[in-house]
Design a protein around this nucleic acid. Structure first.
Lengths: 198, 198
DNA sequence: CCTACCGATCGGTAGG
DNA sequence: CCTACCGATCGGTAGG
């Protein structure tokens, strides 16, 4: 084997740090994610971890980006084959339900947890989390509007209201699953979603 | 003025600590609530704070109790005049909407935040939060069942499903209000609730 | 990537 | 309730 270039090796280490950080942060929160814990888990020194990012905040922002990438792959990507409009909308929310049901991350939906943790703060981490949440909601609203235009949902449907209620069903699912460990929660969420979108 | 007994004074200090702790914890979380911050805010020494509780976990549990008392007063208590069944159910959820709309605590609903923070942990704090959430949901379910028995809601209504969807609307409200600072959120929640309970 | 630090802060204790 | 501590850990830096 030829030796890896130090550039490639550093990038690989950096990705491993962010990946481990995402898993930790989904359980402990983005603030509970500490450099020391990350270093111990990966067998690195603290400065070996921090050197890749410069500051904890930069690390947190990279973890948020990694969460967005995972979300794009595991939720949005899985719905892309469905035609736009009502079927795409149903596929998107079903992908989300399946995403938390399968337990892709050990702490459930990263964005739900991060939103709750950072909603009362200010700064770049809060802005990144809120912005990505906003993009997800805009994508849902767009599919609602397309469904209305195609006659798949009643004319005059308030798409903001539909997105609000869909978000509620998803939040209720994450809540019931994680706080009450209620195995019936995914079925309840699917029932609620089906009734809203019938 | 006769001097207060040291017992009464100590109790008063203890209550002031818990009250300040509740306000801090609603913003910073129960783990972000530190003895040092509390001591500085109240002009006490760290050991002056900790001496009342013995450990941080005991303090956290007392803050959870204080949150439950506040919730009982500001949410459940406000709905008590309504007759049981559908009207009580509507009054309970409207009290909750009003509770976060009025901004009773600076960080929104304490239990929503604490549930998200502790859902992946174990121990007495998690148990207290989950238990109180369960009591709230049981109270809602009871009113749904009474409403069905009185013919105010359709026979065969799945009360667990109704409580799941109501919880979702309340979670969506807290989320939209705190992460997006969306002033339209209370109206959206009221619309969703009214439609569910019509 | 490492060792070896820094000042600050954490929860908690001893003794009064 | 206080002062005066404790060991552990925090994010971060210097220098290699």
């Amino acid at each position: 084997m030829s030796p890896r270039s130090s550039f490639a090796h550093a990038r690989q280490t950096r990705e491993a740090i962010v990946e481990a950080g995402l898993r930790i942060a989904s359980v402990e929160g983005l603030e509970g994610l500490t450099i020391g814990r990350l270093a111990a888990d990966l067998g690195l020194s603290k400065s070996g971890v921090l050197g890749h990012f410069g500051s904890k905040e930069t690390l947190q922002l990279e973890v948020v980006d990694a969460a967005a990438e995972l979300f794009g792959r595991e939720v949005v990507g899985r719905a892309e084959r469905a035609p736009e409009g009502l079927r795409r909308l149903r596929a998107l929310v079903e992908s989300w339900v399946s995403y938390v049901e399968r337990g892709v991350l050990p702490g459930g939906c990263f964005f739900t947890a991060a939103a709750s943790e950072f909603d009362d703060r200010s700064g770049p981490v809060r802005n990144a989390v809120a912005g990505l949440a906003w993009v997800w909601e805009r994508d849902l609203r767009r599919q609602v509007d397309l469904a209305v235009a195609a006659g798949e949902l009643p004319a005059g449907t308030d798409s903001d209201q539909v997105v609000f209620e869909l978000s509620g069903h998803l939040l209720a699912l994450n809540y019931a699953l994680r706080l009450h460990r209620d195995p019936a929660a995914p079925a309840r969420a699917r029932t609620a979603i089906a009734r809203l979108l019938e």
